[in-house]
């Protein structure tokens, strides 16, 4: 029962987030977010690159690190590919797929948008993902920002 209420509250928070989405003509910026139970509060750009390329696959406690990614045409994926890797979203997605197929990287979870990414991360402590700065300003209590260094 408590779990259902939590999920209902989470859904309400996400709906509220969606109504505050940035206007389309504003450039999107994205921040890393984590499950609030995860103690990692900072991450360098190099570490972020290592995480999304499958070179770093564990958290400091040893648990498997699983990334949440957007679809190929999502703003989050475009931002990640362009800003962190300097490649197209298609190229980055293929690299991730290949690392997964090699068995070197846990299968990522695909989230259609900020709300879906937040919901997934709230449910699993070992996930990390990108959400827009606008969404990061109103995160539910189970999700927190990872500051970039």
């Amino acid at each position: 029962m408590a779990s259902s209420l939590q999920r209902f509250a989470l859904c309400l928070a996400i709906i509220a987030l969606m109504s505050r989405a940035a206007p389309a003509d504003q450039p999107h910026r994205f921040v890393l977010v984590r499950n609030a139970k995860n103690p990692t509060t900072h991450m360098s750009l190099e570490t972020m690159k290592a995480v999304y390329s499958g070179r770093t696959t564990t958290w400091s406690n040893g648990d498997m690190l699983v990334v949440v990614i957007g679809p190929e045409d999502s703003p989050a994926m475009a931002w990640l590919a362009d800003t962190v890797f300097n490649v197209s979203a298609k190229t980055l997605l293929i690299r991730i797929k290949q690392q997964v197929f090699r068995g070197e990287m846990p299968h990522p979870i695909t989230a259609a948008d900020d709300g879906a990414a937040i919901a997934a991360i709230a449910a699993q402590p070992n996930l990390v993902g990108l959400v827009s700065e606008a969404a990061a300003k109103a995160l539910p209590s189970g999700v927190a920002v990872i500051a970039s260094e």
Binding site: I15, F101, H107, A112, D113, A116, A119, A122, A123
Partner: peptide
């Protein structure tokens, strides 16, 4: 808006069981 909300609710409601899901790929 309603479609997006529906998708969000669906994901949120499934998220609790996502850990047990296995993704299958075809090559």
């Amino acid at each position: 808006m309603s479609a997006r909300v529906g998708a969000i609710i669906a994901v949120a409601c499934m998220a609790g069981s996502a850990r047990g899901d296995t993704v299958i790929n075809f090559f």
